[in-house]
Lab assay of single mutants.
Amino acid sequence: SKTSNTIRVFLPNKQRTVVNVRNGMSLHDCLMKALKVRG
């Protein structure tokens, strides 16, 4: 089974995003990807 960790990230202006960290990806990469999608 694939394991994925879901991390809630609290952003300024009362924004919130959820990042799924996959195996083999660093938290930083996942964060940058999530913020790019939002931006």
Results as ranks from 00 to 15, higher is better:
1 S>R: 14
1 S>P: 15
1 S>N: 14
1 S>A: 05
1 S>I: 09
1 S>G: 13
1 S>H: 14
1 S>C: 12
1 S>T: 14
1 S>L: 12
1 S>Q: 15
2 K>M: 13
2 K>N: 13
2 K>E: 08
2 K>V: 04
2 K>Q: 15
2 K>T: 07
2 K>G: 15
2 K>R: 11
3 T>A: 15
3 T>S: 08
3 T>I: 13
3 T>N: 09
3 T>P: 15
4 S>R: 15
4 S>I: 10
4 S>C: 11
4 S>G: 10
4 S>D: 13
4 S>N: 12
4 S>T: 15
4 S>V: 07
5 N>Y: 09
5 N>D: 11
5 N>S: 15
5 N>I: 08
5 N>H: 08
5 N>K: 12
5 N>T: 10
5 N>V: 07
5 N>G: 05
6 T>R: 14
6 T>M: 12
6 T>L: 04
6 T>K: 07
6 T>V: 13
6 T>A: 08
6 T>P: 06
6 T>S: 10
7 I>F: 08
7 I>P: 03
7 I>S: 01
7 I>V: 10
7 I>M: 07
7 I>N: 00
7 I>L: 10
7 I>T: 03
7 I>D: 05
8 R>C: 07
8 R>G: 02
8 R>S: 04
8 R>L: 09
8 R>H: 04
8 R>P: 02
9 V>K: 05
9 V>G: 00
9 V>E: 01
9 V>L: 02
9 V>T: 05
9 V>M: 02
9 V>A: 13
10 F>V: 02
10 F>S: 11
10 F>T: 05
10 F>P: 05
10 F>Y: 09
10 F>L: 06
10 F>C: 04
10 F>H: 08
10 F>I: 02
11 L>V: 02
11 L>R: 01
11 L>M: 06
11 L>Q: 00
11 L>P: 00
12 P>S: 01
12 P>Q: 02
12 P>R: 02
12 P>T: 03
12 P>A: 02
12 P>M: 05
12 P>L: 01
13 N>I: 07
13 N>C: 08
13 N>D: 10
13 N>G: 04
13 N>Y: 08
13 N>K: 07
13 N>S: 10
13 N>T: 09
13 N>H: 05
14 K>T: 06
14 K>S: 05
14 K>E: 08
14 K>Q: 07
14 K>W: 05
14 K>N: 14
14 K>M: 08
14 K>I: 04
14 K>R: 08
15 Q>L: 02
15 Q>E: 15
15 Q>K: 02
15 Q>P: 01
15 Q>H: 01
15 Q>R: 00
16 R>S: 04
16 R>L: 04
16 R>C: 07
16 R>H: 13
16 R>G: 04
16 R>P: 01
17 T>R: 05
17 T>F: 05
17 T>P: 00
17 T>S: 11
17 T>A: 04
17 T>I: 01
17 T>N: 02
18 V>T: 03
18 V>E: 03
18 V>F: 03
18 V>I: 14
18 V>D: 00
18 V>L: 03
18 V>G: 03
18 V>A: 08
19 V>I: 12
19 V>L: 08
19 V>T: 04
19 V>A: 09
19 V>G: 01
19 V>F: 12
19 V>E: 05
19 V>D: 01
20 N>D: 04
20 N>T: 11
20 N>H: 13
20 N>K: 14
20 N>Y: 11
20 N>I: 14
20 N>S: 08
20 N>E: 05
21 V>G: 14
21 V>I: 05
21 V>F: 05
21 V>L: 07
21 V>E: 00
21 V>M: 04
21 V>A: 11
21 V>S: 07
22 R>D: 04
22 R>S: 08
22 R>G: 07
22 R>H: 11
22 R>F: 03
22 R>L: 14
22 R>P: 11
22 R>C: 11
22 R>N: 15
23 N>T: 07
23 N>C: 14
23 N>S: 11
23 N>D: 11
23 N>Y: 12
23 N>K: 12
23 N>I: 08
23 N>H: 10
24 G>D: 09
24 G>V: 15
24 G>A: 08
24 G>R: 12
24 G>C: 13
24 G>Y: 05
24 G>S: 15
25 M>I: 11
25 M>E: 05
25 M>R: 10
25 M>T: 13
25 M>K: 14
25 M>L: 12
25 M>V: 14
26 S>T: 15
26 S>N: 12
26 S>D: 03
26 S>I: 15
26 S>C: 11
26 S>R: 09
26 S>H: 05
26 S>G: 09
27 L>P: 00
27 L>M: 12
27 L>R: 01
27 L>Q: 00
27 L>K: 03
27 L>V: 15
28 H>N: 09
28 H>R: 10
28 H>L: 12
28 H>D: 11
28 H>P: 01
28 H>S: 09
28 H>Y: 13
28 H>C: 10
28 H>Q: 14
29 D>R: 05
29 D>A: 10
29 D>G: 12
29 D>V: 09
29 D>Y: 12
29 D>E: 06
29 D>H: 13
29 D>N: 13
30 C>F: 04
30 C>W: 01
30 C>I: 15
30 C>S: 11
30 C>G: 11
30 C>R: 02
30 C>Y: 03
31 L>M: 09
31 L>T: 05
31 L>A: 05
31 L>R: 01
31 L>Q: 00
31 L>P: 00
31 L>V: 07
32 M>A: 09
32 M>I: 10
32 M>K: 09
32 M>V: 10
32 M>L: 13
32 M>S: 05
32 M>T: 10
32 M>R: 07
33 K>R: 10
33 K>N: 03
33 K>E: 01
33 K>G: 02
33 K>M: 05
33 K>Q: 02
33 K>L: 05
33 K>I: 01
33 K>D: 03
33 K>T: 02
34 A>P: 10
34 A>S: 11
34 A>E: 03
34 A>V: 02
34 A>G: 09
34 A>T: 03
35 L>R: 00
35 L>Q: 00
35 L>P: 00
35 L>V: 06
35 L>M: 12
35 L>A: 05
36 K>R: 12
36 K>M: 13
36 K>I: 09
36 K>D: 05
36 K>S: 15
36 K>Q: 12
36 K>T: 09
36 K>E: 04
36 K>N: 15
37 V>G: 03
37 V>L: 07
37 V>M: 13
37 V>W: 13
37 V>E: 00
37 V>A: 08
38 R>S: 02
38 R>Y: 05
38 R>P: 01
38 R>Q: 05
38 R>C: 00
38 R>H: 00
38 R>L: 03
38 R>G: 00
39 G>V: 04
39 G>S: 13
39 G>R: 07
39 G>E: 04
39 G>A: 07
39 G>D: 14
39 G>C: 14
